[in-house]
Write a protein that binds this DNA or RNA. Structure first.
Length: 718
DNA sequence: CTGAAGGCTAC
DNA sequence: TCTCGTAGCCTTCAG
């Protein structure tokens, strides 16, 4: 009971004598959500499970209450400290808690900023000591960056700087529902820390605990994205805030490259690769006199460097400003709204060379930030999410294949060790976890995943039961190249992929960024692909290897290619064309012998997983009107590879065709071929209208590669 | 018409 | 140690 609010509420609450009026008051405060009964159950559950709200909610066993439990727990947790007291005490806390919740939602009446005084317990917040002064809240990307700030701030600075670490990507409030904004703890905490209220127009920051916000992220594209999401949050909820002068928002930049003269006297810092490259070109022969250090994330900087940065904080600070001629709302909205049009246009006009972080610039307009800095994230997001037409691989996947192809033997290796290989030999600056996931996905072979996995799955790589999400931990999994991989990706072509690294001659970056491979057939059609980027997403279904080969052979024979339909290895249902760019997939439904109402499901449509399907048969509240409405009962006898679900249909007068039965039983899905985007031979994004078009494009490029190979092989003749 | 959910590489 | 949040696009489907 550390909170002032809770205590007040408790006092008020105790004034009410009878248990009935207590419940009444609660009902008034909490809306229709809670009965005394539910409170008691909640109290028990809370004692048992603590802050594990999912378990608590499950124990409460009431859908209305589940929402409330969730809402309560997503508030500032420290307020919810359970006293020794009983249900009544709990009720008091919840009352207080909920009123806080309500106030933050309502017009802000009755809730003065002093209700949130210094030292209030938000986990991981380091509050400024002297909030009466003009204080700045530093929002960092992750905990380790917070530690760098804490190490760097002088004792004087600690009076006026608060620090709060952000975890991962911030919610995009422009497209999020009210409900998800409310329950997003990160945003609610930021609001509480700064003292911002909804529906308030700020022409001054007088009422705020912090007068300025400074964001400090890694100096990479994802860091830029996080800055953008934060700008988006403030702009969407309090647009006036960003127009204030002096500016409300700023960023703290750290160098990504530092060079030190080997005689130890001179040193220089760079805030962008463009800037560094420019300097490097000017050095020519003098380059060897300099010692270079690259900084990958904020965690790479030492505490001493942290101190150095904050000693000269003004050199690192860049403020976000509006210039009055422009409507910056348009750019911010375009970057984060639900329509990808603006982002498409921005990427189509994107010129990587115009993207310069000028070290000396101490301010940047929001529009410049979006169109220059943020556009580089959109581009990076495209590059890592959309595969190449040539090898059908995204850069992460390609690096995995690259490392395995380069190994001297093809012995089993742990998935986690493959990741380690990639981190050692390639430029990969992202999380190992994502890499492990990618390896697992490349090796999966359940129906609906790869037709021809390039990697073998030695261990539990996931099954159709849970769509592959039931894979074991990477440290238990082993893999190696599949038998076919070397045939599809001939050794003779390797050097065309890894000769170009863009950095082999760069003494700072010795690792490789392999360019696309040239498999002998367009593998992107065999295993399909899907990716979600910025501006575009892509989806290509799986096709049959033999069909692909036949079409390649037709081209070799100067014949025309023939249309192809999607095909999935091991799939026992059917796939039929259902209009232009659409295919319909059907599971398999058999009539059990003897009983007119009994059916046996022996195959599910593509990308429907056994677990999901079976739970759709349950008669829960959330399934009303769905499949479960048509069935009496079911029995699931499926295993990890086969589907066998016995269904007892409800008796109806109407006789249904097998197709109609599949329809109402949820045994169909759609595959679209209308969103097939790939990077083409020239590394340009291209929309493909048909699999044939992909094969034809591939064919041209592949022929050129054969030519290159021939020239290289016989070069000694000339 | 709106909202939610699934898929996937990233923080 | 493990589970869980967030982005981004497009499609489908329920309400």
């Amino acid at each position: 009971m550390s909170s002032k609010n809770s205590m007040n509420a408790n006092k008020n609450f105790n004034k009410e004598a009878s248990p009935q009026s207590k419940t009444k008051k609660l009902k008034k405060k909490l809306g229709p959500q809670w009965t005394k009964d539910e409170l008691e159950r909640f109290y028990e559950a809370y004692q048992k499970h603590g802050r594990d709200w999912k378990k608590v909610a499950a124990s409460v066993e009431n859908n209305r209450s589940v929402d409330m439990v969730e809402a309560l727990f997503s508030m500032n947790q420290p307020y919810l400290s359970l006293p020794e007291a009983s249900v009544d005490g709990l009720a008091a806390i919840m009352t207080a808690h909920y009123s806080l919740f309500e106030e933050s939602e309502s017009k802000g009446e009755g809730h003065d900023a002093s209700g949130v005084t210094r030292g209030f317990p938000i986990k991981k917040l380091h509050d400024a000591e002297d909030l009466d002064k003009q204080c700045t809240l530093i929002l960092t990307e992750g905990d380790s960056a917070k530690h760098l700030v804490m190490a760097g701030l002088s004792s004087l600075q600690r009076k006026t700087y608060g620090v709060y670490p952000l975890q991962g990507k911030l919610l995009n409030v422009r497209i999020a529902s009210q409900k998800s904004i409310k329950k997003n703890r990160e945003l609610q905490n930021i609001k509480t820390i700064i003292g911002l209220k909804d529906e308030t127009s700020y022409t001054t920051t007088d009422s705020l605990r912090y007068k300025h916000v400074m964001v400090m992220t890694d100096q990479d594209e994802d860091g830029v994205h996080i800055k953008g999401l934060l700008i988006n949050f403030f702009h969407h909820k309090w647009p006036q805030l960003l127009k204030l002068n002096p500016p409300f928002l700023s960023e703290f930049r750290t160098p990504i490259v530092k060079v030190k003269n080997r005689n130890g006297v001179e040193a220089k810092s760079f805030y962008s690769m463009a800037e560094y490259s420019e300097w490097k070109e000017q050095q020519e022969d003098n380059l060897s006199k300099w010692e270079t250090t690259h900084y990958k994330g904020l965690g790479t900087h030492t505490s001493e460097e942290g101190c150095e940065y904050f000693k000269h904080i003004d050199n690192h600070k860049r403020v976000f400003v509006c210039d009055d001629d422009k409507d910056h709302g348009e750019a911010i909205d375009g970057a984060f709204n639900a329509n990808s049009k603006y982002r498409k246009e921005m990427l189509e006009n994107f010129d990587p060379n115009s993207h310069h972080h000028e070290t000396e610039a101490r301010q940047i307009t929001f529009t410049d930030f979006i169109e220059k800095d943020l556009a580089s994230f959109f581009m990076a997001n495209m590059k890592r999410s959309v595969p190449s037409m040539l090898d059908g691989l995204k850069p992460g996947q390609r690096k995995i294949l690259h490392c395995l192809l380069k190994r001297s033997s093809n012995e089993d290796i742990k998935v986690s060790q493959v990741s380690a290989l990639v981190l050692t030999h390639c430029d990969y600056y992202h999380s190992e976890k994502a890499l492990n996931n990618t390896i697992i996905k490349m090796a999966q072979q359940h129906v609906g995943s790869n037709n021809l996995p390039l990697l073998q799955s030695l261990g539990q790589f996931g099954t159709r039961i849970a769509g592959g999400q039931d894979a074991a931990d990477p440290r238990y999994l082993r893999t190696k190249l599949s038998q076919e991989t070397r045939i599809l990706f001939p050794k003779e072509d390797d050097k065309y992929a890894d000769a170009h690294t863009g950095s082999l001659n760069d003494e700072d970056r010795k690792n490789t960024e392999p360019t696309p491979y040239y498999p002998i057939v367009p593998m992107v059609l065999v295993n399909g692909c899907r990716g979600i980027a910025s501006g575009w997403s892509t989806f290509i279904p799986n096709y049959k290897l033999k069909d692909v080969i036949s079409n390649v052979e037709r081209l070799l024979n100067d014949e025309k290619t023939e249309p192809m339909d999607p095909w999935y290895e091991g799939f026992e249902g059917t796939i039929t064309k259902d209009g232009e760019n659409r295919y319909k997939t059907f599971g398999r439904l058999e009539e059990s012998s003897g009983n007119a109402e009994t059916r046996l499901v022996t195959e599910l449509p593509i990308e429907v997983w056994t677990n999901n399907y079976v739970s759709s048969l349950d008669k829960g509240k959330e399934n009303r009107g769905k499949v479960s409405a048509f069935i009496e009962n079911y029995l699931d006898r499926s295993n990890d590879t086969t589907v066998s679900i016995q269904i007892e249909l409800k008796k109806t007068e109407k006789k249904m065709t097998p197709e109609e039965e599949k329809e109402i039983l949820g045994l169909t899905t759609m595959l679209s071929t209308g969103n097939m985007y790939l990077f083409d031979e020239n590394d340009m994004i291209k929309k493909y209208e048909s699999p044939q078009e992909i094969i034809e494009d591939f064919y041209e490029a592949r022929l050129k590669a054969y030519d290159k190979r021939k020239v290289a092989k016989f070069s000694y003749l000339s």
